[in-house]
Nucleic acid binder design. Structure first.
Lengths: 150, 150
DNA sequence: TATTGTTATACTCTATAACTATA
DNA sequence: TATAGTTATAGAGTATAACAATA
């Protein structure tokens, strides 16, 4: 049993409810501030993964992003239409598809890092070093607990 | 400038990017685990607010939830159809509408606290007290920085 | 004229079920 | 038979623009 006193110390039930609300609303706020005319937040997330990890498959991307396969099919279709990713046949396994960034896609990701996260970096810039450290630790905890490795 | 060494210590750019991804994906995971046959995550969030704060108006709810007014109109329409909230005329200001929980709505919120957050409480139950404290602090920081008060 | 709320319109996001092709 | 991916279908989530009613 944890004591109720101290900074940020709450019961599990309350923490769960607060976390649910903060994640729900924060993601709304983030979406509206990180979507651009070019690509949505979800689409950009896929591009950023590909930029970091190289080529992948629709199934692996769906699993990584925690969306169902048909959703990833649609995201990739939009990105392909926009000329940001290319789908090619897998050399050994004819069922699989390899997805990779085009040059245009690479450029968009790199540009995005500067512009897209500007709003969020501004907000993060307003808090203390100590608070940034806490956020960084929380990110790691959430990744292990909810999002999964990588 | 903060040093890169130590637990969870990262540059602002990296923290912003990681936070963006974790919030996006966590909210997806949460939505899928907290939606029920009865109401979606967004709908439940409105019900929970009303249960805690009593009656409100569509405009105030839209602001609190960080959605546009038409979105709140739709959420309230669904909740009203389901018999979970009631809309009544404002006694003084004819433009405004007062929204309040019905008895059915109240019951659903209370039941929801037990059942709806079960999955998340299970995940939170697996981490250490220290990690829970960090999450609690992060919730407070995100609330101040992104979500706003209350 | 300004505010509150709704309607109209048009996307994206999301899931489940059914289908196709390959292994 | 199992797996990878797509298509079909349906609904939730979201925003901007236009509108109506009231202050």
């Amino acid at each position: 049993m944890s004591t109720e006193a101290g900074t940020g110390e709450v019961g599990d039930e309350q923490l769960a409810a607060e976390l649910r609300r903060v994640l729900l609303v924060s993601s709304r706020v983030l979406r509206s501030h990180t979507a651009s005319d070019e690509v949505s937040a979800s689409q950009y997330s896929v591009l950023a993964y590909l930029e970091r990890s190289g080529e992948s498959t629709p199934g692996a991307l769906a699993s990584f992003e925690h969306v169902s396969p048909p959703v990833m099919t649609r995201i990739l279709a939009r990105l392909e239409e926009a000329g940001l990713v290319a789908r090619t046949a897998h050399p050994q396994d004819g069922r699989q598809v390899l997805v990779s960034l085009t040059t245009t896609g690479e450029e968009l990701v790199r540009r995005g890092r500067e512009e897209r996260d500007e709003w969020l970096r501004g907000r993060i810039g307003e808090i203390t070093d100590e608070e940034r450290r806490t956020l960084g630790e929380a990110v790691a905890i959430l990744r292990r607990t909810l999002v999964g490795p990588r």
